[in-house]
């Protein structure tokens, strides 16, 4: 996969499924700590990573996500005892499915982010965005509009860029 040829740098879209007890709380903490991290990450709050399903992950890719990660509690810390263990299994299985259809399995990952680890949340977000940048755009992006059932009036990439965040101050253009 090569970088897109346009002069503008490719801005990947990364979907993060975050468990409400650990990773999402860590995301909150990262915000409270005024940590900057890649704005490419779209966080989806889920009750437990055990809820994650291969269908849900594949659908994100089908709808054009360049990278997807599931962030849950550390081993042994799951609020529901073994939800994160199940998610690890699901993610590993889905990686195989991705390889089967010819999409890079590296686009998908599972991370353990404890609730107290705000900096780790930011680090993982940057890491996954960088990875997506290296892998290039998801080839399925082209059909994204079609998948959305013509609900999108313009290609999602054409939406105005997100306001730049700088140490708690929002500069809106």
């Amino acid at each position: 996969m090569t970088q897109n040829d346009t002069t503008e740098p490719f801005e990947p879209k990364v979907v993060a499924y975050c468990c409400t007890y650990c990773a999402y709380t860590a995301g909150d903490l990262a915000g409270s700590m005024r940590l900057e991290y890649a704005p490419n990450v779209r966080v989806v709050q889920i009750l437990c990573t055990g809820k994650i399903d291969a269908v849900l992950l594949l659908r994100a890719f089908e709808d054009g996500a360049d990278a997807v990660y599931v962030a849950g509690c550390a081993i042994g810390d799951c609020h529901f005892l073994e939800g994160n263990l199940r998610a690890i299994q699901t993610v590993a299985h889905t990686k195989k499915l991705l390889a089967e259809i010819g999409l890079e399995p590296q686009r998908l990952e599972f991370f353990q982010i404890p609730a107290s680890a705000g900096p780790l949340f930011a680090q993982r977000a940057n890491e996954m965005t960088e990875r997506a940048q290296k892998l290039g755009p998801n080839p399925l992006r082209k059909t994204m509009k079609q998948n959305a059932g013509r609900k999108l009036d313009k290609a999602p990439d054409q939406h105005p860029p997100l306001p730049q965040a700088k140490h708690g101050q929002l500069y809106c253009r």
Partner: peptide
């Protein structure tokens, strides 16, 4: 899977 494979 089949949809994505087809599109790819």
């Amino acid at each position: 899977e089949l949809r994505m494979k087809g599109k790819l």
